[in-house]
Amino acid sequence: MSTDRAAPDRTGDPAATSTGLRIVPRRHFGRWLATALILLALAGIIRAFAVGQIEWSIVAQFLTARSIMNGLLNTIVMAVVAMALGIGLGVLFAVMVMSSNPVLRASANGYIWFFRGTPLILQLLLWFNLALVFPTLGIPGLFEFRTVDVITPFMATLLGLGINQGAYTAEVVRAGILSVDQGQTEAAQAIGMARPTILRRIVLPQAMRVIIPPVGNEFISMVKLTSLASVIQFSEILRNAQTIYFANGRVIELLIVAAIWYIIVVSILSIGQFFLELRFSRGYATGRR
């Protein structure tokens, strides 16, 4: 931290040159004090962990254990497919909410109202226990499945996370669509485009600029929300870590293992989000000439 950054340019400063007096730069005592306090606190935390009862060798041993790796893979796969379902539903329901058809509008609003209004963990439990309500699924006379065969922990988690995500993404997409100037639609109409083409070619690509940052955030949330699925026996990373510590008693070490992986995945996603935002700000990044 350099203190002379704030010092006036002595050669160019007319006051200094005309008076010939020496200038003492302003001192930043507060900055130094804050730095010292933070370093002290950091040292304290590092020491606490070093002498605390954590077997770091066990953390290292389980960091790449087979079960943890499988859990990590399940977490990533689930986050991706649930988010894909969420975005698909989000776009669909955003368009329905903005439709001029009152039936479409009301049903989309109802969907958003219900899935935003109940806790996610409750929705996961409902999906997982669907068999209690509907023992079989299908169209009578055509095909029928036993619900317990269809609603596996994977399916229940996918439906729970994806449908819940759709309700939030719908609002984000709607805000994105509203952010695009009406003139863009009129210009597209003027060159003879029909509504669906205007949405696909003109409005959505521009709405992306507004949609990507919050959806990126939600994707990062989604990675962590998959951990809720541990309550319905989906073997994502947290559940697998728990299974191990129920056996060996190394609770903190295995929680640290899971934390490390979450942080790594989220960090990679943040970098990806940066580049995606760059791509969709095409035509905006450069200033007006």
Binding site: A187, I202, G283
Partner: peptide, 13 residues
């Protein structure tokens, strides 16, 4: 009809 608008309305992207 071709149409030209007051605010240009070029597709920004």
């Amino acid at each position: 009809c071709g149409m030209v608008f007051q605010r240009f309305n070029l597709f920004h992207h």
